[in-house]
C-alpha cells in the first residue's frame, strides 16, 4: 500500500506519455540527425571517409572536385566526420524520422 499517495497524484495529473506522431518533443541543441554537406567548403580531403566507423561515406572522384556519397542506412550518427572535417563542410541536421523500406543513398552533388 506504500504507493497509494503517489497514485493519488497520478489520478489528477496528465499522463506523461507523448502521443508521438501527433505530439513531438523539441530536438536538443546538440542533436545528431541526418548528415548535410556544404559543397562550397569541401576540398575533397577524404578525412571523413577515413574516420567513419560505419563506412557510410564514400568519395566519388578525386581531388578538390570530388563529391560525396552518403549511405544513410549504414550511418550510426556519431558525428565524427563533422568533427574531423578540416573545413567544416559537414554538419548534422535535426532530421530524425529516417526509417525507410529502401536502403537510402544520398548523392551529394556539386552545383
Amino acid at each position: 500500500m506504500a504507493m497509494e499517495s503517489e497514485l493519488a497524484g497520478a489520478a489528477v495529473r496528465k499522463p506523461v506519455t507523448l502521443k508521438y506522431p501527433f505530439e513531438r518533443r523539441d530536438v536538443p541543441p546538440r542533436f545528431r540527425g541526418r548528415l548535410a554537406w556544404d559543397a562550397e567548403k569541401c576540398v575533397g580531403c577524404g578525412m571523413c571517409v577515413q574516420v567513419c566507423p560505419a563506412f557510410a561515406l564514400e568519395m566519388v572522384g578525386k581531388g578538390p572536385m570530388a563529391e560525396l556519397r552518403y549511405y544513410l542506412n549504414r550511418c550510426v550518427f556519431c558525428s565524427q566526420c563533422v568533427e574531423s572535417c578540416p573545413r567544416d563542410a559537414l554538419s548534422m541536421t535535426e532530421e530524425y524520422e529516417l526509417a525507410d523500406y529502401k536502403h537510402k543513398v544520398y548523392e551529394f552533388k556539386r552545383g
Binding site: L7, A10, A11, R13, P15, V16, T17, K19
Partner: peptide, 11 residues
Amino acid sequence: YAKLQYRYGPL
C-alpha cells in the same frame, strides 16, 4: 490502471 501509472491506456 493506465491512468494511475501516468499512461493513457487505450486511446
